[in-house]
Design a protein around this nucleic acid. Structure first.
Length: 596
RNA sequence: GGGACCGUAGUUCAACCGGUUAGAGCACCGCCCUGUCACGGCGGAAGUUGCGGGUUCGAAUCCCGUCGGUCCCGCCA
């Protein structure tokens, strides 16, 4: 049908006969001569319809609307020097049309402009409803190509490293822990249900027991939780698992994989190895387990310095086993007004949204003068003040913001304020890729709501060998890869001993029976010669989002869902025929609110 | 489950503190134009201001509800 692609034509194609297929990106009718910008996946090229040619072709060209699907035959002509368009890769040539076939015409109004020249934002619901049009636009073409490139690069790299791509079931069993499952009723086994996988975690471990040794999969995963800019109900993981490798060996392979992807997709040479940061240190310095290290604004613990103050907010927080931490903002005095850091202000709101009760502050003026609320001023002696300023690295002009309370809340609040201020004060350098491995996570964490210990990652992470006799306090041999403050991958060495797996499940409050019932198949497998193994999983959508400079993973997914987990294009989810439910032995308890 | 913001022509936006016939760019339709490339010129059509109710002499504007979308909290091992 075609001999060339639009975007690839150059002066070297001069005088060749070509046939092109594509869409009318735009056309310019000068009465006597008509120019058509013909677009395909590779770009656009100018097609010229001259009056000297066929009258029928000229007549057809006069009728064209944007997005008409065309096949055009003609010869490539070098443009006259004064008509060369330096803005276009194909700007030195044009195709003089001798034949023009309309393969499909446009009926009715287009919901939005597709042209490569059109940068106008379009309401997202409209883009999703007509995603097939949106995908034609440059931005989505680029994002899909980038996604493809990431996936292909990973496949090639992992293939070369001896990894086997293995598919695991989409219809599997529901397991406790983790997110809400998407359930699928079984017609054949009445009353029983499959779950769609939240990740291939157990299967990839079973593949290790199965002697695959190196596995990977671009795995679709499903979690029935509320959506965010970076969370969709179905998403894609690049899932890896390896046997007989140490944690350091696993991290090294992944560093090469990531460096390879960045080199291929962006031409950027990442320095490897990536820095390693202990979880405790990350929490202490940044208040989060996924720190953005592109800027400073690190947190300082001042609990010991303020424990005895008469300012009760500080001293009581410490007395109750909590902490007081400080976020020091250089030049904060001039850059942040009191209105913003006091109740009602945007900075204050960031802290309270994260659960903080308030946001104490001290403005450091010249000659050690402190500008703050009376209660703090009255409470701080000169010695204490000096120690505080020194600890926080404060200088005249510095604004100190304080969080006080239990460690989790303080960290969460100051982390949020820190990120907010970095954006507001434009402290984030452009084109910076700061990777960091966060390691030595706690194995278990206390869940206040359920009054029990639960796995921080998942129940199959191996505890640090030195910590196995105190599982409640144990570190896990787990690692997250963090890029610019976002978790892009997470993994661990796994438990390969049935006995230890049993102990960890018990520590999490599973009875022996319950553990047996839920995870018996795993423990049986571990008992039959499971090799030491471990792995990692990348959030592909998020990775592509970061590479593309997008702010939502929806822009990296061909057909994403809205925040209500709907698809405006297909109108899914939708109702089904009652007979379908009956066949599946399912009855709906849903009551339409309008009918009551 | 909760909070915030948004919804005006096919589309992107405007319309001040409630006050003339709800405007503009692009797209669309018609006419003109032989070197443009986001072509240009002249003219035209296009609106249940998401939907429902209320306040008012008067509502795109204020209030309540509702639907849809976005961001966030909870939730997401």
């Amino acid at each position: 049908m075609r001999t060339h692609y639009c975007g690839e034509l150059r002066s070297t194609h001069g005088h060749q006969e070509v046939t092109l297929c594509g869409w009318v990106d735009r056309s310019r009718d000068h009465g006597g001569v008509i120019f058509i910008d013909l677009r395909d996946r590779t770009g656009t090229v100018q097609v010229t319809v001259a009056p000297e040619g066929s009258a029928q072709v000229f007549h057809q060209a006069e009728q064209l609307r944007n997005e008409t699907v065309l096949r055009i035959s003609g010869h490539v002509r070098l443009r006259p020097e004064e008509s060369v368009n330096p803005k276009l890769p194909t700007g030195t040539v044009e195709v003089v049309a001798t034949d023009l076939t309309v393969l499909n015409s446009i009926q009715g109004a287009l919901p939005f402009a597709v042209s490569v020249h059109d940068e106008e934002p379009v309401r997202e619901e409209l883009r999703l409803r007509h995603r097939y049009l949106d995908l034609r636009r440059q931005r989505m073409q680029r994002n899909l190509a980038l996604r493809h490139q990431v996936m292909q690069t990973a496949r090639r790299f992992l293939d070369e490293q001896g990894f086997l791509e293995v598919e695991t079931p989409m219809l599997t069993r529901s397991t406790p822990e983790g997110a809400r499952d998407y359930l699928v009723p079984s017609r054949v086994c009445g009353g029983e249900w499959f779950a769609l996988p939240q990740s291939p975690q157990l299967f990839k471990q079973l593949l290790m027991v199965g002697g695959v040794e190196r596995y990977y999969q671009l795995a679709r995963c499903f979690r029935d939780e509320d959506l965010r800019a970076d969370r969709q109900p179905e998403f894609t993981q690049l899932d890896l698992e390896m046997s007989f490798l140490s944690q350091e060996q696993i991290l090294a392979i992944n560093e090469h994989l990531v460096a390879h992807i960045w080199k291929t997709a962006l031409g950027v040479q990442l320095p490897i190895p990536f820095p390693r940061l202990g979880w405790s240190e990350a929490m202490a310095r940044y208040g989060t387990d996924c720190p953005d290290t592109r800027y400073g604004l690190e947190l300082t613990d001042v609990s010991d310095l303020v424990a005895d103050l008469s300012f009760k907010v500080f001293s009581q927080a410490v007395a109750r086993g909590g902490v007081v931490k400080c976020l020091a903002i250089p030049h904060g005095n001039e850059r942040l007004s009191n209105v913003r850091i006091k109740p009602g202000g945007d900075v204050f709101a960031e802290a309270t949204t994260a659960g903080a009760r308030g946001l104490a502050y001290i403005r450091v003026r010249d000659r050690g003068v402190l500008d703050t609320i009376g209660a703090i001023k009255d409470s701080l002696g000169p010695e204490q003040a000096r120690a505080l300023l020194e600890r926080c690295g404060a200088e005249p002009g510095t604004l100190l913001l304080f969080g006080a309370g239990d460690a989790a809340t303080v960290n969460k609040a100051l982390d949020r304020v820190r990120q907010f201020l970095a954006r507001e004060l434009q402290l984030i350098p452009a084109n910076t890729w700061n990777f960091v491995w966060v390691v030595d996570f706690p194995l278990l964490a206390w869940n206040k709501d359920d009054q029990r210990l639960e796995a921080l990652h998942h129940p199959f992470c191996a505890p640090h060998p030195a910590d196995v006799h105190n599982l409640a306090q144990a570190r896990a041999q787990a690692y997250d890869l963090v890029l610019n403050g976002l978790e892009v991958a997470g993994g661990s060495l796994r438990i390969h001993s049935a006995t230890l797996q049993q102990q960890v499940l018990e520590a999490m409050g599973f009875s022996a029976d319950e553990a047996r019932r839920q995870f018996g198949f795993l423990m049986d497998a571990l008992a039959m010669g499971a090799p030491p193994h471990g792995g990692i999983a990348y959030g592909v959508d998020r990775l592509v989002m970061l590479l593309a400079g997008e702010e939502s993973i929806r822009d990296t997914i061909a057909f994403p869902k809205t925040q209500q987990a709907r698809c405006p294009l297909t109108a899914a989810p939708g109702s089904v025929d009652p007979d379908q439910l009956k066949e599946l032995h399912v009855a709906s308890t849903w009551v339409d609110p309008d009918s009551t």
